[in-house]
C-alpha cells in the first residue's frame, strides 16, 4: 500500500482517539494524550494531502473517522446500537463524501480573503 494512504489511516486512528478523549478524558494525562492526538492529526493529514488527491483523502478520512467513532462508542463505551441513528449517520456521511467529491479544490493562487 502507498505509504501515504497508511498515514491517512493513521491520522484517522488518532482522530477517533481524540474524539473519544474529548468526551471521556478526566485526568491530566488523559487530556494531554487527547491534545497530543489532536496535534498529530492536524499536522499529519495535510502532509498526506501533498501527495494524494485531497478530495479523496478527505473522503476516506471523514469516513474512517465517523465509522471508527461509531464502533468505538458501541464496542468500547457500550453505547446502545440504534439502527436508525446508524442510518442517519450513514446518510450524513454520504452527503459529506459526495459533496467533497463533486467539489474541486480551488487553485492555490485564486481567492480573495
Amino acid at each position: 500500500m502507498n505509504k501515504y494512504w497508511f498515514y491517512v489511516l493513521l491520522a484517522s486512528s488518532f482522530e477517533v482517539y481524540w474524539v473519544s478523549g474529548l468526551k471521556h478524558s478526566e485526568s491530566f494525562v488523559e487530556w494531554s494524550l487527547t491534545i497530543g492526538a489532536i496535534v498529530i492529526t492536524f499536522f499529519l493529514l495535510p502532509q498526506t494531502a501533498k501527495h494524494l488527491p485531497i478530495g479523496t483523502v478527505y473522503a476516506v478520512f471523514a469516513g474512517l473517522g465517523t465509522v471508527g467513532t461509531v464502533l468505538v462508542e458501541v464496542i468500547v463505551y457500550g453505547e446502545p446500537f440504534i439502527p436508525l441513528k446508524a442510518v442517519l449517520i450513514g446518510t450524513l456521511l454520504i452527503g459529506v463524501i459526495g459533496l467533497k467529491k463533486v467539489s474541486s479544490e480551488p487553485v492555490e493562487s485564486e481567492g480573495v480573503a
Binding site: 473519544s20 468526551k23 459529506v96 459533496l99 467533497k100 467539489s103 480551488p106 480573495v112
Partner: peptide
C-alpha cells in the same frame, strides 16, 4: 453521543466551507 456530535460537526464544517466557497470564491 460522540458519533452524533462528530458526524454533525463534520457535516456543518463541510456545508459551511462549501457555502463560503460559493459566496466568497464564486464556486
Amino acid at each position: 453521543s460522540m458519533a452524533t456530535v462528530y458526524g454533525v460537526w463534520t457535516g456543518i464544517g463541510t456545508v459551511g466551507s462549501t457555502v463560503m466557497g460559493m459566496i466568497l470564491y464564486n464556486e
